[in-house]
């Protein structure tokens, strides 16, 4: 069942209404809750970028932690060593992430697929982490890099409320851009590659180029998220970009819904908010996390987004494979 045109119009309104309502959030929550929400916005971007490669392109690439770290370190190095204002480092971090995406796609194009791709990208992420630790003169080594205090147009960038508005705008822009990209000719080609690469190539679509584009977009989005993370914690540190980070964002994609933008958002929200809520059971996170993921895999294999789809057709994303 596809949505009617009235429903589609409602969907557009809803898309803009949610962030508009969120503008009021900093007025009603305390700085702690706001910090968590800022973290959620960052995870939305990570999951969005990650889902783009594993859900939409259908490649088992685990390089998103590498992109994330590359973005965060690019931002931190550009502000601390080059003295650039943080806001100017966002596109830089995005581009650095995209470059990482390009490298990962090079592996995919060399015929390294499925588990091979998973493992080589995993290794890529860990090698990057080794570099953060050992390239002491630029990355600060194990002590990490501390972000300088800055203001932007008179607003203090250490204020979580200011961060929130910047993060929100960027998240909305990147979500919208990803949706548009998926609806475009390129997006359709990306999903065609997922369904059948050989057949897609036989239609004259340059599949290699499509794969490169998908990886680079994923790297760009996650790289931007890295830049936000650098400001969010004001402290960039090698341990933040390890395996745990990878597994958490992987779980967000699956719990939210593979290949679904709405799923990326839901997954990031649920799997950030829930562990935070479970703070009072220290030591139990791993267990809870594992059990939640198992439950979703068994009971809701299409992820949380499928629940909403059942609720109303306005949540159907056409590029999603049921």
């Amino acid at each position: 069942m596809m949505p009617t045109s009235a429903q589609l119009r409602f969907r557009t309104i809803l898309f803009w209404l949610v962030p508009a309502l969120m503008l009021a959030v900093p007025m009603v929550v305390n700085p702690y809750v706001l910090f968590i929400i800022n973290g959620i916005l960052i995870f939305v971007l990570i999951t969005l970028g990650f889902n783009f490669v594993i859900g939409n392109l259908g490649q088992l690439a685990f390089a998103n932690t590498a992109f994330f770290g590359i973005g965060a370190y690019s931002s931190a190095i550009a502000t601390t060593s080059l003295g650039l204002p943080w806001i100017a480092t966002i596109p830089l971090a995005g581009l650095a992430g995209a470059l990482g995406g390009f490298l990962a796609s090079a592996a995919a194009l060399r015929g390294i697929r499925l588990y091979y791709l998973a493992i080589i990208t995993l290794a890529f992420g860990e090698l990057m982490r080794w570099i953060y630790v050992h390239a002491k003169s630029i990355t600060g080594g194990t002590d990490g890099l501390s972000m300088p205090r800055e203001t932007l147009l008179g607003f203090s960038l250490t204020d979580d409320r200011v961060k929130f508005y910047i993060f929100l705008v960027l998240t909305v822009v990147l979500v919208k851009a990803t949706l548009n990209l998926l609806r475009s000719h390129i997006g359709r080609s990306i999903m065609a590659v997922r369904e059948n690469e050989v057949a897609t190539a036989s239609l004259g679509i340059p599949t290699s180029r499509i794969i490169v584009i998908a990886f680079m977009w994923s790297g760009f989005v996650v790289g931007c998220a890295g830049s936000l993370f650098a400001l969010h914690t004001a402290y960039v540190f090698p341990e933040s970009f390890g395996m745990l980070q990878l597994i958490v964002s992987f779980a967000m994609v699956i719990v939210g819904g593979l290949g679904s933008v709405l799923g990326s958002i839901l997954g990031a929200v649920v799997l950030t908010a829930l562990p935070e809520y479970l703070r009072s059971f220290p030591g139990m996170e791993e267990l809870f996390f594992g059990l939640i993921v198992i439950a979703v895999l068994l009971l809701l294999p299409q992820g949380l987004a499928s629940l909403l789809r059942r609720l109303s057709p306005i949540f159907i994303e056409r590029y999603y494979r049921e």
């Binding site: 402290y235 540190f237 703070r279």
Partner: peptide, 22 residues
């Protein structure tokens, strides 16, 4: 009032903000 940091800066930041502001 105990807060977990898991030895992770982001988690520690959330914890300290909870202690201070909530």
């Amino acid at each position: 009032i105990q807060e977990d940091t898991a030895c992770d800066p982001a988690k520690g930041l959330a914890g300290v903000k909870k202690l201070i502001f909530q």
